[in-house]
Amino acid sequence: MNYNIGHLIFGIIQFFTIILLAPFFAGFIHKLKQRARGQKGINIFQFYINFNKLLKKEIVLSKDATFISEIAPYIVFVSYLVILLMLPAFYRYSLLGVSSDVILIAYSLALATFFMTLYAMDQGSAFGGLGASREWFLTVLSEPSLIFIFISLAIYTKQGRITDIFYFIQKGAANAFLLGVNSDAVSIAIPFLLFISLFIVGISENARIPVDNPETHLELTMFHEANILEASGKHLGLFEYGSYLKLTVFLTVMSLILFPYMAVNIYQIPLALIVYILKMIILCILIAGVEIVSPKMRVFRVPNLLSVSFMLSLIAMILSIRGF
């Protein structure tokens, strides 16, 4: 890949577009859920307003807090930003596309978890420890599926970078379904399995209802929320925004698995952007639907769900090694 200034500019545009859209997707899901419950619901743009408000508030630090409390919110936020720098959402050449290795993405997510849980344990509150423990519980269970999903994608397409992977699928699908040539390279079953698997992992990693319910402050439902219980002011803002970014990362990867369409040149960008937003909205509706119909799970039943996700990605892996 040879980069020129155009790639750089559109990479930056793509990066900022995703960042700006992130709270919208989270707000949209929230709104859908509330409407489905018969509430009036928040403004779709409420989360932007919240973030802005949180930036203006003062930070209340615990007297037991150490330097971790000062740096963790930034590192959590920044590690999601770096993942977004690698992800191609609607433009093929993302900014860090050269080094957008799939394993790196999975481990960057772990980096964010690492600092978030350290933050949780920093103030010596029992809730923080509880949240950190549960967060790692989920991460330990979902990390194998996440890495399996990414590695099956890499094996399926014989590419290691996430930009190349989805471009390969896009090209293969276009060739197979539009032109009818070289159809052996594409499969319907593998993306299907990976999509479901990633959906389950996404739900558990993003604190969505069958696993977690961040809207309440009950300790029974505390996974994500217990971690950031002590955060306030701009720290809370960064954590909240970080969680929207994480959701967006998962949704973007899902949208690319579902229907990879990335612009290769400038003229395709508007269409690609529209397709991207449409896909994301469909996925938001899907997630909101799952959240509405399913009840919160008992913590120790979550492994059942995640093991299914692992198994599905394993089947996808077996399917993708078929050709060798």
Binding site: L61, S62, K63, V78, L85, Q123, S125, G128, E230, L238
Partner: peptide, 28 residues
Amino acid sequence: ALAAVLLIVFFYLKLFSSDKKRIFETWA
């Protein structure tokens, strides 16, 4: 990239957010 983004975020927030800080008991 990590360092650059970290710096950008840090200085952005330094400029556009409140810097007030209060040390208090752990809320829990």
